[in-house]
Design a protein around this nucleic acid. Sequence first.
DNA 1: GAGTCGGCGTAGACAGTGTCTACTGCGTCC
DNA 2: GGACGCAGTAGACACTGTCTACGCCGACTC
Lengths: 192, 192
Amino acid sequence: MRADEGLRERLIRVGGELLDHEEPSRLSLREIARRAGVSHGAPRRYFPTHLELLSAIARDGFTELTTRVTAALAGAPGDPRAQIATLARVYLDFAATRRGRYELMLRHDLLESGHLGLRDASLPLFRLLTDLVAQARPEPEPPARIVAGTLWANLHGITQLWTWGSLPLATDATDPSALLDATLKAHLGPAA
Amino acid sequence: MRADEGLRERLIRVGGELLDHEEPSRLSLREIARRAGVSHGAPRRYFPTHLELLSAIARDGFTELTTRVTAALAGAPGDPRAQIATLARVYLDFAATRRGRYELMLRHDLLESGHLGLRDASLPLFRLLTDLVAQARPEPEPPARIVAGTLWANLHGITQLWTWGSLPLATDATDPSALLDATLKAHLGPAA
DNA sequence: GAGTCGGCGTAGACAGTGTCTACTGCGTCC
DNA sequence: GGACGCAGTAGACACTGTCTACGCCGACTC
């Protein structure tokens, strides 16, 4: 419990911390309130509903992921292709280390109930990827946003199916880097 | 309520039907029991826990998807590349029309709690895809299971991000076929 | 300085949930 | 005909999200 943070920020932080040891579906409003040291009715002043609190935590996750990515890119400059590889690694690593947050971030049922701004929260990252793709692939066809979209979907799919255990089972791979390499090569062409 | 089916099958069927109009997280054990015309304690004889019933419904979804795919492939024979495209379209269509089922099928928290056989349920489909990829891409490198794995992940990612609404927003596309084409071209090379 | 007010959080109620347990029909055998 | 075992019932329990009425306490006004 930090002194200079309001209850609103504390609830988001505590909820995120609980997600490091608990599944999203077990993350109850009352438990967050207990850990934050307030009564079960207190969150209601800031988050009218359980879903809105969860969505705020998920948004927080997107900003953390975006921060991680931009920090990694700033720390390891290179050609666009190498930067895309860095982005992908950070993405995978985030899903592995902040597993609960990552799962929460892609729960449809949370995202769709009202316009909670979650799609928008993921856009900066996608824009970043689109820019890198445009630099790495100067060809006009297919357009960069299509390539970036499929690449993003591929990265997302690998991350999800890997952490879930299906890809290790199906491909006999021991780590996802072979899949990642294949993905980059497929969408961006062979490395320079 | 069909005459010749036991309660176990009825629960799975009713649960699947409810998913056509309800989100997976709202699919309560008691509601399924009510719709099946039994008391709330009845399912316990066949499914000791709520998760086990949900997992059975998800497994049922995988077999339905596999059935749809194999039927479509049998009805439209062609070269392996065209069959992969058919498989992809059926996959996307399944996610769109049986939305709740599809979401349920990829809920980590259900899959990981114990060995409920859900990963295994998705394997036949993956094997089918791997075979088609091996036929469509005779080159030994990278191995077919790696290509199939990344292709599967890509298909999965496109499906999920599309139904969720992120891809339409990010790519300005009005239907996912452009992304699908780009995916096939990226992983399998240009069409013959 | 006393009094009022409004924002912030408390506390209790309510319907609904998943799970557990004791029980009741009821068909099937010996 | 009676014992048995299976399938489903019914009630209890702790817990959940939401709603409502209620206090506290600092700030602002006259």
